[in-house]
Simulated assay, not measured.
Amino acid sequence: IIHGIRHFVPQMIKQGDDCHIVNTSSMASMCTLPFAGIYHMTKHAALALSECLFHELSMMAPQISVSCLCPELVNTGIATSARNRPEELADQNPTEMHAMSMAAITDATANSLHPRALAERVLAAIRNKTFYILPPQDNPWMVTAASRLEDLKLRRNPTFAPPAI
């Protein structure tokens, strides 16, 4: 995201046309779950960077809109993406934890959102200049995010509220 912003935003400003940037984060940017701290950290950072960019461009180049895509589980085959890795870069000694994680991701995404539905959500957000591209309000991930927001509002310790998927 950083390299994309550094490379494309100056060109977008220079051309002066209406443009739209969509950065991809995750619903992991809206909550925290155990055993995924590094993943959540990177997704929180992607959301924060996108929010800052939204404000900066609103002030400096209002013809450029920004959205941040925070999808729930999407059936993309991500758990099998290692199949595309060159053999010399393959993990020769995957850990048991890694195997368990990949199995869990495969199971969780098997009946999840179709990529086309997500693409339609993104296009609607671009058309409407919507910043937060989120799942529907009744989605289990939104319930988890609402729990975190409530924890912050009430200044209470984090609630363990994984999405009921």
Rank of each mutant, 00 (worst) to 15 (best):
D17P: 08
M102W: 05
G16P: 06
L57H: 02
N93H: 15
L123G: 01
M30S: 08
F160R: 12
W141A: 12
A104T: 13
V122M: 09
T80I: 05
D91T: 12
T95S: 14
M60N: 12
P71R: 02
A61E: 07
T159P: 07
V22M: 01
S26T: 06
S25N: 00
N157G: 11
T95L: 11
G16E: 11
V66E: 02
T106L: 10
I133W: 03
A164W: 03
V22T: 06
N84F: 05
V74K: 06
G37E: 05
I1Q: 00
M60Q: 14
R155F: 08
C68G: 01
S112K: 05
S147I: 04
H98W: 14
W141H: 14
H44S: 02
T144I: 02
A48R: 02
T32K: 13
M30E: 10
S29W: 04
S67Y: 00
Q63Y: 02
I13Y: 07
F160G: 07
P94C: 13
H98R: 15
V74F: 04
L69T: 01
M27A: 05
D151R: 12
N128M: 01
P158K: 11
T106A: 13
N139A: 14
A146I: 04
R127G: 03
D17M: 11
M59F: 09
F54Q: 03
M142P: 02
P34R: 11
D138E: 13
Q63L: 09
K129R: 11
D91M: 12
R156T: 07
A36L: 12
H3V: 09
C52A: 09
L134A: 01
I126P: 04
R127Q: 08
P135R: 00
F160V: 13
S58T: 10
D138Y: 03
F131N: 02
P163G: 04
D107R: 11
K14A: 14
A146T: 01
I38F: 15
Y132E: 04
T32Y: 14
V22A: 03
D18K: 14
P163L: 02
T159Q: 13
P86I: 08
V74W: 06
M100H: 15
L69K: 00
N139H: 15
P162G: 03
M27C: 07
H20F: 10
R116Q: 13
K153I: 08
E87V: 04
I126F: 02
A90E: 12
L134N: 03
R116C: 07
P163K: 04
S67N: 04
L149A: 10
N157D: 14
T95E: 09
M100K: 15
P10L: 14
V74S: 06
F35D: 13
F8A: 06
R155G: 02
T24C: 10
F35C: 15
D18F: 12
M97P: 10
F131G: 04
A124P: 00
A164S: 09
A117M: 11
A48Q: 05
D18C: 14
A164L: 10
E150C: 06
S67C: 01
C31V: 12
E96L: 15
I1P: 00
T42P: 01
L89F: 14
E150G: 08
I21V: 11
V122N: 03
